[in-house]
């Protein structure tokens, strides 16, 4: 890469390695992903190429991930209910448990854990699939056959990710709250009425919108970042492995970053 070509010299080279190279690599990475995004936007103009693949990817990303996302949400809901109940000191009304379970599941843990789980399961799968196609020159073959590889491989995954992660988050929210309710009523001394009263207390539709907005961003981030890492994979099977691990890490970090940014920007509108 010309942008990171190293000048000659001892101390200067070390300073270059320590300070300037990471910065340049960062800008290089951002620029490369920017170009990739431009390619994706361009490829949206070829629906005949990507639409037939969208449903297939929606099944792989969404339907096949439903059991795992549901399992995680169920356990998280139960743990929230138990932890909240046993941390309450006497005098606090038990309806707080319903309120806390709803707020934690809908606003935070539902979309976040679904995103992280999918980053591990689906993100790795995307990177490995596209990366393998790259190292086995199938992508080059597609180009030879006048198929746009971005439209054929990346766009369906991004569309599927953008659609299916909110769908999975809806299930995760409902299952998380449902198991929180069941755990509270069956295992602890919380009454149905208490939980229901807390569940409805100070609820607004914006909370659901906030949850789905986060899921939408996480879905886009997972599919975009993991597709990119697979698309630029090199150096054989080892490179595919490295790209897969790197994709999962980057996607997970970006999910957390986006989560924090969303909370910082939209949290004031969530005040009950």
């Amino acid at each position: 890469m010309t942008a990171t070509a190293l000048p000659e010299g001892g101390a200067f080279r070390r300073a270059w390695d320590v300070i300037a190279r990471p910065i340049l690599e960062f800008f290089n990475g951002v620029g490369a992903r920017g170009y990739f995004l431009r390619e994706i936007l361009r490829a949206l103009g070829e629906p005949g190429t990507y639409l037939p693949e969208v449903v297939k990817q929606m099944r792989a990303i969404g339907v096949d991930s439903l059991p795992l996302a549901s399992l995680v949400a169920a356990f998280i809901g139960s743990v929230i209910a138990l932890q909240t109940r046993y941390q309450l000191f006497p005098g606090i009304q038990l309806s707080v448990i319903g309120l806390i379970a709803r707020q934690m599941v809908i606003l935070e843990l539902g979309p976040l854990l679904t995103g992280l789980v999918l980053a591990g399961r689906v993100g790795a799968q995307m990177t490995a699939e596209i990366g393998t196609m790259r190292v086995t020159e199938q992508i080059d073959a597609l180009e030879t056959l006048a198929f746009d590889p971005v439209a054929y491989l990346v766009v369906p995954r991004i569309i599927a990710g953008l659609i299916m992660l909110p769908v999975l988050t809806v299930y995760a929210d409902v299952i998380g709250i449902g198991f929180s309710f069941l755990t509270s009523v069956i295992v602890t001394d919380v009454h149905t009425f208490d939980f229901r009263a807390g569940l409805r207390l100070g609820f607004s539709q914006f909370q659901v919108f906030y949850s789905l907005l986060k899921a939408l961003m996480f879905g886009g981030a997972i599919s975009f970042l993991c597709s990119y890492e697979g698309y630029v994979t090199g150096a054989g099977a080892e490179g595919v492995g490295r790209s897969t691990a790197r994709a999962v890490v980057i996607a997970s970090i970006w999910i957390l970053v986006l989560d924090a940014l969303t909370a910082a920007v939209l949290a004031p509108y969530l005040q009950a």
Partner: peptide, 23 residues
């Protein structure tokens, strides 16, 4: 695939609307 994906999305939409209205 079409049936599965359609069923999952439809069910999610129904759950979303009904759950939000209930809350």
């Amino acid at each position: 695939d079409n049936i599965l994906v359609g069923a999952v999305i439809t069910a999610a939409f129904v759950v979303l609307v009904v759950g939000t209205l209930w809350l």
